[in-house]
Design a protein around this nucleic acid. Sequence first.
RNA 1: GGAGGCGUCGCAUAGUGGCCUAGUGCGCCCGCCUGCUAAGCGGGUUGGGGUUGAUUACCCCUCGCGGGUUCAAAUCCCGCCGCCUCCGCCA
Length: 441
Amino acid sequence: MIDIKVLRDDPERVRASQLARGEDPGVVDAILAADERRRSSLGEYEALRAEQKSVSKNVGAAMGAFQKAKKSDAPDVAELEAAATAARERAAELSDLVKALEAAASAAGDELNALMRRVGNVIVDGVPSGGEDDYVVLETVGAPRDFAAEGFEPRDHLELGELLGAIDMERGAKVAGARFYFLTGVGARLELALLNMAVAQAIEHGFTPMITPTLARPEVIVGAGFMDAHAEEVYHLETDDLYLTGTSEVALAGYHADEIIDLSAGPRRYAGWSACYRREAGSHGKDTRGIIRVHQFQKVEMFVYCRPEDAEAEHQRLLDWEREMLAKIEVPYRIIDTAAGDLGSPAARKFDCEAWVPTQGRFRELTSTSNCTTFQARRLNIRERDPRGAGTRTVATLNGTLATTRWLVAILENHQQADGSVLVPKALQPFVGLDVLTPVG
RNA sequence: GGAGGCGUCGCAUAGUGGCCUAGUGCGCCCGCCUGCUAAGCGGGUUGGGGUUGAUUACCCCUCGCGGGUUCAAAUCCCGCCGCCUCCGCCA
């Protein structure tokens, strides 16, 4: 949810953001009108409610006087009773009116909220306009290996995984269906090593490691923004009305929901380790081979709560920490600035790091870091004491990937040798306990 | 799975239909007093929204959350969430 004050003060900025996202800028005017209706409706209700309260208080006094007279058999009992009854009747009329006005005000509020929910976060200046293909490449790091010059045809990650006894797709399908898999032997070791290296790096940079719930209540999923564009992506457990989270971002965003947190000592940085579940609806036939696109995987995710004015600098830091991880696995990659239309509603800017996958001859996303500014925190009601004075204000949230199961694809393919063995990148060696993965008999 | 209890301001607690504009204590903040500190004294101390150009000020909502009964709800009723106790079951 964006800040309605921004929309009131600078509607043009919101219109421009909507246009860049390829969404309806007209919703801005609809919101301004609905906001006007809500405020006048609320004013009417509150005025009458104030009157009703004072009248009702008089009823209390009249009733008191009457009861007292009745007890002491005073001569004016009948008059007092009549007065009390009359006052009560008048209060009853007012009460009905107030109820009607309250309903109207609440309906006007609902209408405004419904419109507000349709607006994505206001993009950060500089985000490219357009859709999925309109990203801007910010930097390319490293160069792809020339396998032709080395004299062999690279094997894809699944072929390597099977040679090494690291990946078993067939049995994954037998147990859980398509897009499920077993990591076995060195595959399991490699994933644990990667995730442990990510956690170690996070700790080194002051993050608090977290192991999070992977089921979340509806309000947390909605608050984190996963019921907008990703609604079809989320597994739902109907009997319990819980959702399987597609990333620990959900749990970490919900962690401080409805709290006023203290950021005076700097950002709160969490590194969440969790299994992630995605339905991959609508991607039938895409990436069906191997572990590139699967229903369940592991991820270490950075999640930060910080002051709104620090969010852009923090976003750069998250990107730097992602780059540090990518450097450790020694694969070529590029960084893209995602276009507005491909951001998803909570993000104001998103950088993806995409690693080179030799057998596909293209870059594939390994990390994604989003600056959600105050959008996510506003929905989840996460605030801080305003350092500039009285009151509270909404904090900013950001997230970014440190490692996922998909990274194994890039590691295996980029470090393979002609005989099907795979060299373990130096930084990863102490975590795996091996220098090289060799094919099994 | 069954039975019961509880949820009030940062913390502790009072409040069982109108005197609640939610009291009291602790903590915290401001001031006074005081060689210093402590004590003492006085004041302040939930959050959200609205009116106003802004300040002051005023108004509405907020006693876990959402409904309902009533002229009037912290208080009565219903649902949900959370915590606790006992029994059963599983490990």
